[in-house]
Design a protein around this nucleic acid. Structure first.
Length: 971
DNA sequence: CGCTCCTAACC
DNA sequence: AGGTTAGGAGCGA
């Protein structure tokens, strides 16, 4: 080797893994031999050979070698036994390909270098050092950061897949230090994948900054006491030895004894026939053709090479979930519980490697992946959209995972980061290409609607809605969020978001949306984030979803919750997606008129309030209001809030008003108007689409009891109580020719209580259509129902509701504004008249304490682990919640069942009514005027029969339904 | 800018 | 008193 020569060193081992992960492992030869990695490897190598023949591109190699790791143990293991200890065995379908890849290199007529006890990196370091000493230049084909330390004026690193060349300046840009200091930087940072310890709490940024300041690792460690940050200083001192060890581990050996001399790497023209023979044997038709053309070889004249395979190939491995415990495993005999436990352990043990994820930029690759999904019959699927709202968001890309770790992202709607395509034409180029949206959707539709392929999502309603906007109706589906919710709905910290599930069940923290896109002012749309980063984020989401599914799905059957999931959760997702997509029509003019009206009254009240207070202040500030009322004006203050402030809630102000104080009365009125205006009349128009419709988002997994919730906007708390509030409901309308139909269950929770607690008087009353609160009052206070005072009935009503809420004397006293002793008396009498109620409460509490959860009539569980808390406040709270949950939850289950059946029933009756909203015990539909009567009939029947046949209630369910031009009149 | 507190709308 | 979501004030980084 001499001056002007150029050595190419290919990091073969890294190449293999990248090739393996870049291609769907399904790639097999006709005899079933897996050859995906070989194929990828040959393609990359050929591309490199072709490129280096092209004098226009850059360096032309005079010397060339492909270098492999020989074995996993090296001299580094003697220094540190844990080195690379957590490396996983290579996948089984990759193992037989290692030998073939070395054959491939020989077929290319390139030196194939490896040496026992040394890593490929050490050999690369040695050759590179020698080449530079001889005056040559070096290109190392790899993207491994461990090789950065070799970069110098004459040595560059070439990342072929990203087509990037790294010299000293690029290393500095990427890591903040020049290559000379890379070793020190790595020693500080460590490397989790290789088990190089480094120093805790120091990442690449901090390390670069410290090296900038102190020069070298040694200097830094010696002067560690000067560091200001407490934790950082302590760690540098405590883990100094660890950093020195790390340095030895990451330092490459430039003096590896070589079996092949540098000069023997001299390049020569590949032997066309030999290479073509090999490629033909591997059945790489496209590559064979290309190589034959370039090397001027007639492929038809060449016979396939004979190959020796060192390790037997095997068929496609099965999902852990499909291939449960077998004899010999510790989980045998395979109870569902043991299976679930094993799956969890397995999942937690599998590392997640984001660098293995693939970006799919052409239709052929996409089709290969989709074929993989067809082969497996299962895929995890996720969509990325321009906004967080599924209805408004535009598709930016989709990701999928076929098996754990085998995941890819398909960018579809990305834009150049800094978006000025005119002045910066390269930025469009830098995107690297995307499959045209329509073309990709056609391919995706076939799989997403294929009944034989299960699509697993996390919060799949979101993806259903996004795809629905593109005319794709995904089916069948599974949803990890809903599975988790069915298994673990609880009031505590446990949420069902993907990041939480991943940390809980996989022990892995995925990239958060915030990390990807930033937040607040610096947030950028996901479509403008670099595709490589989105690939990691989105593929990881699909990958993690698939892994979570493998852990959680078997638990459903194991824990007896399959019915809840399959009948109450999963089938509701598409129903809700369609409801959200339809939206409800709102009359903008009505809202705007109301806003104006409210504003006038509000202003008038503000004037009065200021006059009465003697000064201007913000009545919207409880703090300021408290100071005025209880400080300046010296009114008697009642309640205090948690933080010790005077309470100024409506109750307190109304009590003051009742004593003749005008100011609090005005503030109550002002507050109401402000609320109606700020939350409804001013805000709802912002949520309207171009057709005047509002699309809420229903959350299926945010309550403990099984109720839905609604947000953005919340359409489950549209005012109804006061006249002014009800006016807002008149703005919810039906389009011309249609009406809104509202159907609501009458007293459903009390009916369920009557059934569950088995209270004869309550059951009779419901069976005979008697006024339930009047009946209760009559029993409690020994007065006839006829001619009963309204206040007596009101008290009984409050008690009935209190019972459902897990009554306490404190709460009832508050509600009725009576002394606690009196409330206690009421409760006592109630229990005497309806002893079954007390039984129910005691039994429910005992059950919850024993099991940690309670159940609805349909088997849905709500968990209350804190019900055994020492703190009586916390314990009592959990007891009340546990008493309420079966009642509220059963009602929620019943309306869910009605909703799941509703669309089919309407279709069977040839009715075009569309279900739009659910408000806990009410369903709202949009109905053609000439179909109203029939629709009421169907809707009422479905709702009233919704508990059957699973649960036969001993009280009838009654539904009131009415249609009108707007929601206020229909209700 | 993001969090907590307070209040209030619904069933 | 059970289950929610939302908006404004106020506070601290």
């Amino acid at each position: 080797m001499k001056k002007g020569d150029h050595l190419f060193l290919v990091d073969g081992s890294a190449y293999i893994f990248r090739a393996y992960h870049a291609l769907p492992p399904l790639t097999r030869k006709s005899d079933g031999l897996p050859v995906g990695a070989v194929s990828g490897f040959c393609n990359m190598l050929w591309k490199l050979v072709e490129e280096s023949r092209d004098t226009n591109v850059g360096a032309v190699p005079t010397h060339f070698a492909v270098i492999f790791d020989y074995s996993s143990t090296t001299f580094r293991n003697e220094l540190y036994s844990e080195y690379k200890a957590n490396r996983e065995e290579p996948p089984e379908d990759l193992r037989p390909q290692f030998g073939l890849i070395r054959d491939a290199v020989r077929a290319f007529d390139l030196p194939c270098i490896e040496k026992e006890g040394y890593e490929a990196d050490d050999l690369i370091a040695t050759y590179a050092t020698q080449a530079v000493a001889a005056g040559g230049d070096v290109t190392i084909v790899s993207s491994d950061k461990d090789l950065m330390q070799l970069v110098g004026p004459r040595v560059i690193l070439y990342d072929q897949m990203k087509d990037k060349r790294l010299g000293p300046d690029e290393v500095k840009e990427k890591f903040g230090v020049y290559p000379e200091k890379m070793i020190d930087l790595q020693a500080l940072v460590g490397d989790t994948s290789d088990n190089v310890p480094g120093i805790p709490g120091i990442g690449p940024k901090t390390a670069a900054q410290l090296l900038e300041e102190y020069g070298t690792l040694e200097e830094l460690l010696e002067r560690a006491t000067e560091i200001k940050q407490n934790k950082r200083r302590e760690n540098l001192i405590e883990f100094a030895a660890q950093a020195r060890l790390s340095k030895k581990l990451v330092t490459l050996d430039c003096e590896t004894p070589l079996d092949t001399e540098l000069d023997d790497l001299y390049i020569h023209e590949p032997d066309g026939e030999k290479l073509v023979a090999f490629l033909k044997a591997m059945e790489f038709t496209t590559l064979t053709r290309r190589v034959a053309a370039t090397l001027d070889t007639d492929a038809s004249e060449v016979e396939s090479a004979k190959l020796e395979i060192e390790d037997a190939p095997r068929g496609p491995d099965l999902d852990a979930a499909k291939n449960p415990a077998s004899p010999g495993d510790s989980v045998f005999p395979a109870t569902p519980q043991r299976l679930a436990a094993k799956l969890k352990d397995d999942a937690a043990g599998q590392a997640i490697d984001r660098s293995a994820y693939v970006t799919i930029r052409d239709i052929d690759t996409l089709n290969r992946w989709l074929d993989r999904a067809r082969d497996r019959g299962v895929m995890a699927f996720d969509t990325e959209t321009s906004e967080l709202s599924a209805y408004k968001g535009h598709l930016v890309g989709v990701s999928m995972a076929i098996t754990p770790g085998e995941a890819a992202y398909v960018p579809l709607g990305h834009v150049a980061a800094d978006a000025d395509l005119l002045t910066d034409p390269d930025s469009a180029e830098a995107l690297g290409g995307q499959i045209p949206m329509d073309e990709a959707l056609v391919a995706l539709k076939d799989v997403l609607e294929d009944k034989s392929i299960l699509k697993i999502g996390q919060n799949v309603k979101y993806d259903l809605l996004v795809m629905l906007q593109h005319g794709i109706a995904m089916t069948p589906i599974d949803d990890t969020m809903l599975i988790s919710y069915a298994l673990d709905a609880s009031s505590g910290l446990a949420g069902h978001g993907m990041d939480e599930l991943s940390e809980r069940f996989l022990g892995h923290k995925p990239i958060s949306y915030k990390e990807l896109c930033g937040s607040g002012r610096s947030a950028k749309p996901i479509a403008a984030v670099e595709i490589d980063r989105v690939t990691e984020y989105a593929s990881e989401d699909a990958d993690v979803t698939l892994r979570i599914w493998q852990v959680l799905k078997p638990r459903l059957a194991a824990e007896g919750l399959a019915h809840v999931y399959e009948r109450l959760e999963r089938p509701l997702a598409p129903v809700l997606a369609r409801m959200e997509q339809r939206g409800i029509m709102v009359d903008r003019q009505i809202l705007s008129r109301l806003s104006g009206n409210f504003a006038q009254k509000q202003a008038a009240l503000e004037d009065e309030i200021a006059k009465m207070a003697g000064e201007e202040f913000n009545p919207g500030s409880p703090k300021q209001l408290g100071e005025i009322l209880f400080g300046k004006l010296g009114l008697p203050g009642g309640k205090k809030t948690k933080s010790g402030q005077w309470s100024t809630d409506a109750r307190v102000l109304e009590d003051l008003a009742a004593e003749g104080h005008e100011l609090p009365r005005r503030v109550v009125d002002w507050r109401q108007l402000t609320k109606l205006k700020g939350t409804y009349t001013d805000t709802l128009p912002h949520h309207m689409d171009e057709n005047g419709r509002i699309h809420t988002s229903f959350s299926m997994a945010s309550t403990t009891t099984g109720r839905l919730s609604s947000s953005e906007p919340n359409l489950q708390n549209i005012p109804v109580r006061t006249e002014e509030g009800r006016a807002i409901r008149t703005a919810f309308v039906a389009p011309k020719g249609k009406k809104l139909l509202s159907a609501d269950y009458s007293q459903i929770e009390l009916r369920i209580l009557a059934h569950i607690a088995d209270i004869p008087q309550l059951k009779d009353a419901f069976q005979n259509g008697v006024d339930i609160h009047a009946m209760t009052a009559s029993e409690m206070f020994n007065v006839p129902v006829e001619g009963m005072e309204p206040s007596v009935r009101r008290r009984a009503k409050a008690i009935n509701f209190g019972i459902i809420y897990g009554i306490s004397a404190f709460g009832l006293a508050n509600q009725l504004a009576i002394p606690r002793e009196e409330a206690g008396q009421y409760i006592k009498r109630y229990f005497e008249r309806f002893p079954g109620i007390r039984d129910y409460m005691d039994k429910t509490k005992a059950f919850a304490k024993k099991h940690g959860y309670v159940e609805t009539l349909f088997g849905r569980r709500a968990h209350y682990p804190d019900i055994t808390a020492k703190n009586p406040q916390i314990r009592s709270f959990n007891e009340r919640a546990a008493i309420n949950a079966p009642i509220q939850g059963t009602a929620a289950d019943i309306i869910r069942r009605a909703m799941v059946r509703m669309e089919g029933a309407l279709a069977d009756a040839n009715l075009s009514a569309m279900m739009l909203l659910q408000v806990h015990d009410e369903l709202v539909f949009e109905v053609e005027e000439d179909e109203i009567d029939e629709t009421i009939e169907v809707v009422t029947n479905i709702m009233e029969a919704a508990a059957s046949p699973r649960v036969i209630l001993s009280v009838p369910l009654e539904v009131e339904a009415k249609a009108a031009l707007n929601w206020e009149e229909a209700h």
